[in-house]
């Protein structure tokens, strides 16, 4: 039956799905029967997310998960334009998640787990943050041979200006026109400090290379292609650079942009209850201690007082501002002007 369904899927999907799928994996039910197949649309790589799904399936053996990886921009295409029904949408682009909820594409979910979430980690009982991930700078040790490692953005600007030849063409950052997360990081940078535009000028003048995703940037640093990757997801970097000594992850000390990866249940979900169970699983996990096999950092800062720790980007309607058509156009124009000289 399921095979037939999948076959049907493959047959019709090129027609039905105009959105671009990066990867699609079916996590078959671990129990004897599959009562429900959860259709999860996510920006997180399959192998990164797999441990979470497996532990969820350990508790819910009759649930199969159809895990579809897309870019955050494609989520908007799939949910808003195609109106395709998913059970859960997981994204690192907080602003897009807020927009989905604000525009009525999400449904509320209430449980003891969601009640336990701190105020700032949820919006409208529809968007639930379950990680806290910093935007970081990854540096190649070799490239910085003989130089002090920068601790702040002004540091970085100064070093780049003093050694333009060493770094020309060896800096990478997000192409904010392609990556929703990159756009989120850039816009938050621009809110936080004027340094952002100076840094962009400097990066632009050194022929910075633009990437779609954190993974590719980190790989290039590892391979020595890049000396600096700016605004990389810290969690990915930690995972990939595990053990290696050639690169170093810097959390800038002037300010850190903290992103919440979040989940929402679409209004047209076929299995909202099971999706709710998965949300609860994510939240319970996120509020627990950092487990070794958990691919994402916990929601509450480890070993730090939640009150004094830097606060993450607030889930709220403010995030809609940079999705405004005019504002986005103006921002991208300004960014292009400085980045693509």
């Amino acid at each position: 039956m399921r095979a037939a369904l999948l076959a049907l899927f493959t047959l019709i999907s090129p027609v039905a799905s105009a959105y671009e799928i990066e990867d699609r994996t079916l996590f078959a039910a671990t129990g004897a029967t599959a009562d429900v197949t959860l259709k999860v649309l996510s920006t997180a790589d399959t192998d990164v997310f797999a441990p979470i799904l497996r532990s969820f399936q350990a508790d819910n053996p009759s649930v199969a998960v159809d895990y579809i990886t897309v870019s955050s921009a494609e989520i908007m295409v799939a949910v808003v334009e195609e109106q395709e029904a998913f059970d859960l949408v997981i994204s690192s682009a907080m602003d897009l998640q807020i927009k989905l909820s604000n525009d009525g594409y999400a449904q509320p979910h209430r449980s003891s787990a969601t009640q336990a979430l701190p105020d700032w980690a949820a919006w409208r009982e529809e968007v639930f943050g379950f990680t806290r991930e910093p935007a970081s700078i990854v540096l190649s040790r070799a490239a910085f041979d003989g130089l002090d490692l920068p601790r702040t953005r002004p540091d970085l600007i100064r070093i780049l200006r003093e050694n333009p030849d060493r770094f020309r063409g060896r800096i990478g950052t997000y192409d904010i026109r392609q990556s929703g997360l990159g756009y989120l990081f850039a816009t938050q940078d621009s809110r936080n400090s004027e340094t952002f535009w100076r840094l962009s000028e400097t990066l632009g003048s050194l022929g910075t290379r633009l990437y779609c995703c954190s993974g590719a940037m980190i790989d290039d640093v590892e391979e020595g292609e890049l000396a600096i990757a700016y605004n990389v997801l810290g969690s990915y970097a930690t995972a990939r650079l595990d053990g290696g000594d050639s690169s170093v992850i810097v959390l800038p000390q002037d300010y850190v942009t903290l992103m919440l990866r979040s989940a929402l249940i679409p209004a047209n979900a076929a299995h909202p209850d099971t999706a709710g169970a998965l949300v609860d699983h994510l939240i319970t996990d996120a509020l627990g201690d950092d487990l070794p096999d958990r691919p994402f950092p916990a929601l509450l800062p480890m070993g730090q007082d939640a009150a004094t720790a830097p606060s993450p980007i607030r889930l709220g309607p403010g995030l809609l501002v940079f999705l405004d058509r005019l504002r986005r156009e103006n921002f991208i124009r300004a960014w292009e002007a400085s980045m693509l000289q």
């Binding site: 309607p317 501002v321 504002r327 103006n330």
Partner: peptide, 24 residues
């Protein structure tokens, strides 16, 4: 042209989790 100020919408989120719509 207009750059919607961040605070214009975030202030609406400070009171309640209500949906927000705007048009210029």
């Amino acid at each position: 042209t207009v750059d919607i100020p961040y605070s214009a919408l975030s202030m609406l989120g400070s009171v309640s989790d209500d949906r927000v719509f705007y048009a210029v």
